[in-house]
Design a protein around this nucleic acid. Sequence first.
DNA 1: AATGGGTTTAACCAAGTGGTTGGCAAAGAT
DNA 2: ATCTTTGCCAACCACTTGGTTAAACCCATT
Lengths: 204, 204
Amino acid sequence: MKKEETTEHQILDAAKDVFQSKGMDGARMQEIADKAGINKAMLHYYYRSKQLLFEAVFKNAFSLLAPQLNAILNDDSSIEDKIRKFTSDYTSFMMKHPYLPNFIINELNRNEDFILKLKDNTGFPNLEKFKTKVDSEIREGILKPIDADQLFVNILALNIFPFLGKPLVKALTKKDEKSYKAFVESRKIEVANFIINSIKTSIK
Amino acid sequence: MKKEETTEHQILDAAKDVFQSKGMDGARMQEIADKAGINKAMLHYYYRSKQLLFEAVFKNAFSLLAPQLNAILNDDSSIEDKIRKFTSDYTSFMMKHPYLPNFIINELNRNEDFILKLKDNTGFPNLEKFKTKVDSEIREGILKPIDADQLFVNILALNIFPFLGKPLVKALTKKDEKSYKAFVESRKIEVANFIINSIKTSIK
DNA sequence: AATGGGTTTAACCAAGTGGTTGGCAAAGAT
DNA sequence: ATCTTTGCCAACCACTTGGTTAAACCCATT
């Protein structure tokens, strides 16, 4: 039997669906059981409590996101290349997992202490290398002076916000589902240009 | 008796607290009643149902946010001035209402149709004037070519994200509450510069 | 003092809620 | 063949949920 067919995995799969679309408070154990096609008692048999099942789903989701961040932080390419690659890759990734950013941001806000449990994990993104690279490119005259933290938050903001605020942005810009998708797709390049334009010194 | 002391207003006030920090699903009618210091039956007496009380709170919150957006969209100043003013004003405003962005974004995601109820309201932000201004400044050579929708979303993203993703950003940049506040405060100017740098043509 | 409408309350209710239990059947283990 | 473990389920449980109700309480008008 494949791993994907075990009851335990079917539960996690169904729980992911329900928790990510309805959040911890809105999710119902019965709905998860129904979606997994098993008895509700099994949820507790394998995961003991709603809280623990939720944490399993959350850690799973975060472990999907973290490598996306590490990609930009830990490789050796130039800041410009990092930004271009990240902006394109991240957007593609999010188009495949549209619930993910909202789920994570939201549940972290609901329980701020929760992130402490993640910090211990190996693989939690670390900015040091990125900062060093930014500072050295500034010294070399490739980039205009900018605080690396600020730049990093700007990169995140421009990439994540269109997914977080999708309903709002859709309404404000009067786009339907199809044109919103095209809008986000074009941001893969637009956002990178926008950032680079701002931080790169003009070539003499 | 002042308006602020009526039972109806006390309920709305308490409901705002609870709904904004716990969301629709996490909020409890009993907690709202307790916080307002009145009997739970009064909530239904004045607002009939949890759903309607929630909608009252939500519309109230949105009507606080909408003018902030309209400020940048509807005045006659240059795009640069709009951006500088908005970035500073919006950040100040959000520091006073930290739960607001998350509440709105979140509940709009929970129920996409909900925004339709707001769209009808007069005062729902309209981008037309902003777009016209952007296009005319591009034609005048003040700005580099950029799609006005993209620019608008970038402005929103850079301003709102630090509030939406506060727990995540705090953890990633390893800032405590105090230094995070300073970080956000400095963005009032940093973000405006970041945007202007990117879109303004270099002066010959 | 009696009336009557708006306001407030304690007590209540039906429908869920997460979680538990005891037993059952198939699969190993002895 | 018998015992033990594992996976599974229907039924159940204590408790919470949003919402209701009928009676009380004010307080201005008569």
